[in-house]
């Protein structure tokens, strides 16, 4: 894929670093970018990633991204997932479950 697949902009830098590095190791075929939260809205509009992973969903993310994951809303161990407008919550979301959302997007795109 030539476009950014996953854009990670969680507000905690350590979260961005370890999640993006782990994703790259587990899915080297994906183009994964990590940006500070303050730049996330701008990068979402520029890069139009397939999936945005953030700490808080802004209007720009909701408007420009068809799929996003909000991690740890209000510090709870869960992921709020939105794919094509359909939302669901994954409690205690694992790395594999987060990557599963990406696989879901890929599967939808190829069908």
């Amino acid at each position: 894929m030539s476009r950014t697949d996953v854009l990670i902009g969680h507000h905690l830098p350590l979260y961005r670093e370890v999640l993006s590095s782990t994703f790259r190791s587990m899915r080297p075929d994906l183009l994964i970018c990590s940006v500070p939260e303050v730049e996330l809205d701008q990068k979402v509009q520029e890069l139009r990633p397939l999936l945005v992973i953030c700490g808080m969903v802004t209007t720009v993310i909701a408007d420009y991204s068809s799929a996003w994951i909000a991690l740890y809303p209000e510090d709870r161990d869960e992921a709020l997932v939105s794919v094509a407008g359909k939302r669901r919550t994954i409690p205690h979301a694992s790395v594999l479950e987060l990557l599963g959302v990406m696989e879901e997007l890929e599967s939808t795109a190829s069908s």
């Binding site: 350590l14 979260y15 370890v18 999640l19 782990t22 190791s25 740890y72 992921a79 694992s94 790395v95």
Partner: peptide, 10 residues
């Protein structure tokens, strides 16, 4: 935070 912990461990 499960996915963070797993990534950190990794």
């Amino acid at each position: 935070h499960t996915s963070f912990r797993e990534s950190l461990v990794f």
